[in-house]
Simulated assay, not measured.
Amino acid sequence: MQQLPPTLRRRTTVTGDEADAHLGLQPSERYHQIDPAPHNLAYLAHLDQTVQLGDPLASMLALLPCTESYGLIAQKLAQAGVASGGYADWVAYYVGDAYQSAVTWSWATVTQLLQQSQSATIDYAGIYATSYQHELTFWQMAEN
């Protein structure tokens, strides 16, 4: 957010705590003791390297797959009727208007930054594709 021009910064925040949505899944008491897997560390390294470029468009594109995928997966779970039981809080948070507006804002911000971009040296498409590949790996590992 700090890299964005003031006119593009999100003025409203997502209501509720995202951590509460995850805790709604009722993880084991020991979930804090689980070391990040290599694919998680690779993803975090990619995000860190991208943000360190100091380019707001690159940073938004690196984060967009994570932001978007949670909303998309929650929508599919809700459509499939999985929005009950242990997943209810998680699905409700990510299909909620506040979170979905954050996804819409992210896409609108990326679009505006693309229109204003003057950097010919940053591989924006590669950053986005790499983040989405990491995100897909994250979800594939979660499914197993």
Rank of each mutant, 00 (worst) to 15 (best):
M1I: 02
L4E: 10
P5C: 09
L8T: 12
L8Y: 11
R9S: 00
R9G: 00
R11T: 08
R11M: 10
T12D: 09
T12R: 13
V14K: 04
G16K: 13
E18G: 05
A19C: 10
A19Y: 14
P27K: 08
P27Y: 07
S28P: 02
S28W: 05
S28D: 13
Q33I: 00
Y43D: 13
Y43Q: 09
L44V: 03
H46A: 10
A58W: 00
A58N: 07
A58L: 04
M60F: 03
L64H: 14
C66I: 08
T67H: 07
T67G: 02
E68A: 12
S69I: 07
S69E: 14
L72I: 11
L72F: 08
I73D: 11
I73N: 12
Q75S: 15
K76C: 11
Q79T: 14
Q79D: 15
G81S: 13
A83V: 06
S84N: 09
G85K: 00
Y87K: 05
D89M: 11
W90I: 01
A92D: 14
A92G: 13
A92K: 14
A92S: 13
Y93M: 13
V95A: 06
V95T: 15
V95G: 06
G96Y: 13
D97A: 09
D97Q: 10
D97Y: 09
D97T: 13
A98T: 14
A98V: 02
Q100L: 12
Q100R: 14
Q100T: 04
A102G: 01
S106T: 10
S106N: 11
W107R: 15
V110N: 10
Q112S: 12
L113M: 02
L114W: 01
L114N: 04
I122T: 00
D123G: 01
Y124R: 00
I127Y: 02
S131Y: 10
S131V: 12
Y132H: 13
T137P: 05
W139D: 07
W139V: 09
E143Q: 05
